[in-house]
Design a protein around this nucleic acid. Structure first.
Lengths: 199, 199
DNA sequence: GTCTATACGACGATAGAC
DNA sequence: GTCTATCGTCGTATAGAC
């Protein structure tokens, strides 16, 4: 817990930092980089613009970076974590699928990789998104190889699986019907495991 | 060709209207609705803002509508047209695939359904995008049924195919590697025809 | 750390000359 | 139909009180 002394008072800060970044992430997921204004974030977080600049001196770009970093953390330490754990492939895959569904609010929330990579986003953000995508694909790839796919096939299967999820999210957003995303999640095993390729 | 008489001069107009709308479409594909400013369009078209307002009195929203209408036309009268023509399913499917690849610049260009449906786009635009998507899916669905899929399966296959394309475009944009989109195009037949489902 | 207040450029949009 | 010029609003960003 970080504190600051101002006019003789100790003001508690931080602590709710995770909530703050969660709200910022939601804003960028919904509106993209250009579509998210500081007043958007201000309303979402309850902090006035000047307060946001105190926490993120570099402004909006730093806030978007923070959102991406936060998502990176969630993917590596929670959502995709089961891939690096012990147990049957099918079990771990089911865990990952469930967590992906939760993270994307069952298809209600968009993916930052999509919304933060339109033209107009700072190059550094686009580069970060590219690395995040690469990590995601490589983790799926690992799962594919474990289930018996050869290296090349595992890579293609992993990209296909991520594309299915991204496409499912786009369809869910455009059509308002989240089933497209749900099916993409349910098809994960089919796309990533050798069993499916043999049918 | 529409003309206007101004100060004794006849000024040629229109004629290049298609080019104008093409430039506007490219802007919205690249930057989305909020990310596309009138100066963006001004630079892309060579027309000053006031001139754009003469052609689109309702402003940016009307320009986005025009872009969507233009894409609707291209899809129904060209890209997806082979679906309603005569000949073997495989032949028509190959034509559609080729035209999709061309339209999306081999994966370099994003889809308006994606870029125009982020939060911040006017509700009318989002509604239009939804109808455009529905038309696209229903045409793919028709092809699926023709190749022997039952109604329910054809619908799911059609949504899966469109999702694969949208996801492929997202991956291509984020990673900079257009192969993800190319594979989505090449997998169209596999996703839409009964033959593939039997393997 | 959060606030009020403000600078200043970019934005969408109009009026009016030619 | 296209231009110059301009309006009011909203954008990002800072300064400084508490």
């Amino acid at each position: 817990m970080i504190k600051a002394v101002v006019g003789g008072f100790h003001i508690k800060v931080q602590a709710l930092n995770d909530e703050l970044i969660e709200k910022i992430t939601e804003s960028f997921q919904a509106y993209g980089f250009e579509g998210t204004s500081l007043s958007t974030i201000s309303k979402a977080t309850g902090l006035i613009k000047a307060s946001l600049y105190w926490r993120f001196p570099a402004g909006k770009e730093e806030m978007a970076e923070a959102a991406l970093r936060s998502v990176d953390q969630q993917f590596s330490h929670h959502i995709l974590k089961p891939i690096d754990e012990a147990g049957p492939v099918a079990t771990r895959l089911a865990k990952v699928a469930r967590r992906l569904r939760e993270f994307y609010g069952d298809g209600k929330r968009a993916c930052l990789l999509d919304t933060l990579t339109l033209g107009g986003s700072p190059p550094a953000i686009q580069k970060h998104a590219r690395l995040t995508l690469e990590f995601w694909v490589s983790q799926f790839e690992k799962l594919g190889r474990e289930s018996g796919l050869d290296n090349a096939t595992a890579r293609l299967a992993a990209e296909d699986a991520v594309a299915a999820l991204e496409g499912g999210l786009v369809l869910a957003r455009v059509s308002g019907d989240r089933d497209a995303f749900r099916r993409a999640v349910e098809s994960l095993g089919e796309r990533l495991t050798k069993a499916a390729k043999r049918i």
